[in-house]
Design a binder for these strands. Structure first.
Lengths: 329, 329
DNA sequence: AACAATTCTGAAATCGATTTCAACTCAGAT
DNA sequence: ATCTGAGTTGAAATCGATTTCAGAATTGTT
């Protein structure tokens, strides 16, 4: 593997001059520039990015913290981020936290060891106070979820509105008993979505029923589980506001299998608007989330921080959601 | 950010001794070891992995080349790989090639720049001759797909068997006109699957009909497209061997929407056995692929190469597939 | 022709670790 | 008392780049 030293020797020049050519510095005569380029070509030389990173104290790797990659919401998010990162030569490192606090901290520590230059939390279980001390080791930002009192850049979705329009839609269809599913995460803007749900109920003068709240709703299996938990109740809801299209999917499949008509016996509202939502029978009504958009916005911001070695400002960027009405409600 | 120098100074010792403590070398008195550990603790010192990588010429980052992360097959694969990598402190870098040759080469170049220590191809468009020259810059291996004449470790699935058992199942159900979908990739073991399909037809003395071959079958949209292409034909197939559960999904959704009964009018076989396959109505018959298994096997092998700085041996590890019969066939 | 300003170049320092090598200490053997 | 060898330590070299600084070459100005 050729080094800058080899190139310098072959071109009969110093390492400094070769470095200047590589980095397009001025003050190199055309003649020597050519000669260096030829030597690089001849040796198949490519600068060693490790050495460069050490010397310049810069970074081109970004850690993205997500619960699991096989969750379509997050794989879509990372997909969008990677496209942008690749355009400018940055690398994305997958960090699956499994929604565990300790694993989040493990990956956060990679900032200290310089294994990543910056970190984007796409989900989080830790409180801000725990994360905050790591700020001095590199840019940290949040995309999608964030703990309360966060002092870091945030790119997120208007979950309050999401909860509100989803619930309102069900109310307008005449439902008065609306169950609500949520993922287990204690913080995050999911609480905002819940606030939107409450707000809509309030407007219709309806009370909140604790027995219709279902937690740990992540995937299709949870959907099935919740379907049964729900049907067992004496005072059954007539509609469910699920936490994701996967949950809605599992629920619908199980409902059909058990002879529960959707939406007549039970209306089911998804969340995300994944391709599959449109393909189900009945097609799933859902709340569209611009996943790619938040991913792109967040990664662009992070790249700007790393490029300029600038300190992140604590601004919050909120993108809108909208309702997609199909046939499951 | 504290460096080894700071620790040495605080402990009143040399950098060498501190390094010995960090790396658990023998020949350090217990007294000094304690004193170094205390200094590290006090300064919150963590070794800089960039500096370490430069000096030791080792790597702990692995690039995984996939077409797209939002394809569930690949997100599941990377998911499994990341779990293992994280256990031993290795980092996984997502490289989405979009099935483009140039992008594969772009990422392959990261071996030269030392942005990754090794590369796992989970899909590939380039011929082996094009990839081969990069072998000298770090371990390269294949997981799932591989070009012909590959001289590198391969972990894959018995696609020949997959094609065979899938087709045979349809034949046994009495189908004589079986369409076949495949992804566009020109090489890869997908050709093996096709060979299995042909083998089964051969055994039943049935000819191959070129008009029933559909390429570029990747996702649900392709499934819809192919459904229509297929129904337009005068001499229509009665069964389809799709290239993935997503394709089968799109096809089934479109069939139902157009009044085609599945499986009575058209039997549809998936591939992968994703969670969704079981949830569809009708539930999708499919060929189960042990995705996690090949991911785990491949990443373990790669970590071994990087740890021992050993040259990969060109062995091929083939894992079995099996049929899952549900209601779409 | 003398001087200043600009352009160009390389030696050496630097980033933060690991590793080599020489030297030094201290038992135990002769 | 001397020698040997194992244990222990630090100075200096090293990995492969970038950057500083000083000096040389060239150009422009009076």
């Amino acid at each position: 593997m050729a080094t800058i030293e080899d190139v310098a020797r072959l071109a009969g020049l110093s390492r400094a001059t070769v470095s200047r050519v590589i980095n397009n510095h001025p003050y190199v005569t055309e003649e020597k520039r050519k000669s260096v380029q030829q030597a690089m070509e001849q040796l198949g030389y490519v600068p060693n990015s490790i050495a460069r990173q050490l010397r310049t104290q810069t970074h081109e790797t970004i850690g993205v913290l997500i619960p699991r990659l096989s969750n379509p919401f997050f794989s879509k998010l990372v997909d969008a981020m990677e496209n942008i990162a690749a355009e400018v030569g940055f690398q994305l490192i997958v960090c699956q936290t499994k929604s565990q606090k300790e694993r989040e901290l493990l990956y956060l520590n990679w900032l200290k060891t310089r294994q990543v230059g910056g970190i984007i939390f796409a989900s989080t279980e830790n409180e801000w106070d725990v994360i905050k001390p790591y700020k001095e080791f590199g840019p940290i930002m949040f995309c999608n979820e964030y703990p309360p009192h966060t002092e870091a850049p945030i790119v997120c979705l208007d979950q309050l509105k999401g909860g509100y329009i989803g619930t309102k839609h069900l109310l307008e269809r005449g439902h008065k008993k609306i169950a609500y599913c949520y993922a287990g995460s204690q913080f995050t803007n999911i609480r905002e979505r819940y606030a939107g749900y409450k707000k809509a109920l309030d407007e219709y003068g309806l009370p909140l029923n604790e027995r219709w709240m279902f937690k740990d709703a992540y995937d299709t299996r949870d959907g099935k589980r919740i379907y049964h938990a729900l049907m067992q109740q004496a005072d059954r809801p007539t509609a469910v506001f699920t936490s994701s299209d996967e949950v809605a999917l599992g629920m619908i499949a199980e409902a059909k299998r058990n002879g529960t008509a959707v939406p007549d016996d039970l209306a089911i509202l998804g969340f995300d608007d994944q391709p599959i939502a449109e393909l189900m029978d009945p097609a799933i009504s859902t709340v569209y989330q611009p996943v790619e958009q938040i991913g792109i916005t967040a990664i662009r911001m992070m790249i700007r921080f790393l490029r300029n070695q600038s300190v992140p400002v604590n601004e919050i960027t909120e993108l809108p959601l909208h309702l997609v009405v199909r046939h499951s409600t």
